[in-house]
Design a protein around this nucleic acid. Structure first.
Lengths: 221, 221
DNA sequence: CCGGTTTTTTATACATGTATAAAAATTAGC
DNA sequence: GCTAATTTTTATACATGTATAAAAAACCGG
């Protein structure tokens, strides 16, 4: 019982020895997602992949949500961290853009975002840089955190809403929206009516950066 | 076959007569949600409520997602529409706040947001007023739509992320986050480390309005 | 070697959304 | 009235996440 003994590799010498490990499960999950997309990642498929049974997985991850979170973690860990400009304001914007790009590059990220919020390990790098840049811009630490939070809401919202839009576009049922926008009441909704068909085009445009810069503009003193 | 006949009540005189209607299904869904929360709304339970079978529902709503969207619609239709200030900028902020409050008042709204985006009927009132106010503030219609869009991302993001946070707080497993924030590396993440325990407090605060005003500040000329 | 303890794995079961196909109930044409 | 067409309802089935409880496989003290 030497307290200075290596604490991690000190395996528990009791109980039935595990046939699979969390790492194996994660590695298998990566494989499955890589080749079949996140839609093909089911607990049963994953169990088959590691040569075990579905319920055995639950001894290594709490549930599927945690599994996805862990996948996202190591996706984020593998990302290049761009060099950030000196100027604090530019640094802030650049870091936020990098965060956004990271999320946008991972199609299934939405499923995790609605469940948890990326404040784990790899994701912290973005938070660190954004908060730090905000402080460098003259905000108090408290307001810098609030600023980060606002940027996070905006960013996560953009990712999620746009993903929803893409999903909607995928199955090509003529959307409720199109019908609604087709016959807008000019009396009660004159502005939208005057925009009419351009709405789809306009909202399809990528204005993340524009909005981000506006937000930053308003947040900084 | 008079083409000028009432087009809507002209019921189709052919085929097996329906035993349930979309309106009945919706009314039943409202009852179920009202008394048991959205979690208790299952297709089977709903079928039982209308005295039918699960699959019969699918002739009146496309799927559960559409059902929720319809529920949200008439929730929104029932909301009071606040009087808006004259000053366009205040009007913009007030309308956005009203939109946010509307969403925040509906706990299960998140499930719909991630699937579709509230651009249906009742939700349009907010869009109309926000876009119109933005134009009144001097934006072109195009930029006004973009501005609305940014506000929408920010708002939806706030609602979704905060809901996730609340859900996480509900089941009291000591979150990954707490553990992560407990031992931050002061070398690589000095700023977050210096904030440390205050992070939870700070991010728990409601800063929606603050962020909104910053965003509006930056969006308007 | 044996019974107890601990850990991991397995088996079984359930609730859910919904696909598919059959059945039922009506009208239209003859 | 009979057959075909049309619409709605029902029955059955499947994949999914995961709860629960039993089983298996290793350790320990005797």
């Amino acid at each position: 019982m030497d307290p200075m003994a290596q604490s991690v590799p000190q395996r528990p010498r009791v109980g039935r020895p595990p046939r699979i490990s969390r790492e194996e499960v994660l590695a298998a999950a990566r494989r499955v997602v890589e080749e079949g997309g996140v839609g093909s990642l089911t607990m049963r498929r994953l169990a088959a992949e590691v040569g075990s049974t579905p319920m055995a997985l639950y001894h290594h991850v709490k549930d599927k949500e945690e599994l996805l979170l862990l996948l996202l973690d190591d996706y984020a860990a593998g990302l290049a961290r761009p060099a950030l400009p000196e100027d604090p304001r530019e640094r802030l914007v650049t870091a936020a853009l990098a965060m956004h790009d990271a999320l946008a590059g991972c199609a299934w990220v939405v499923e995790v975002l609605v469940a948890d919020d990326l404040m784990s390990d790899a994701g912290l790098w973005y938070a660190e840089n954004i908060v730090d840049a905000a402080v460098a811009c003259g905000l108090t630490p408290e307001r810098a955190v609030h600023a980060y939070r606002s940027i996070w809401y905006y960013t996560a919202g953009e990712i999620i809403i746009r993903a929803a839009g893409r999903r909607r576009a995928a199955d090509d049922r003529p959307t409720h929206r199109e019908r609604v926008f087709a016959d807008l009441d000019e009396e009660t909704l004159p502005r939208l009516a005057s925009i009419g068909g351009r709405w789809a085009t306009l909202t399809a445009q990528d204005t993340y950066r524009q909005g981000l810069e506006a937000l930053v503009e308003g947040l900084l003193p």
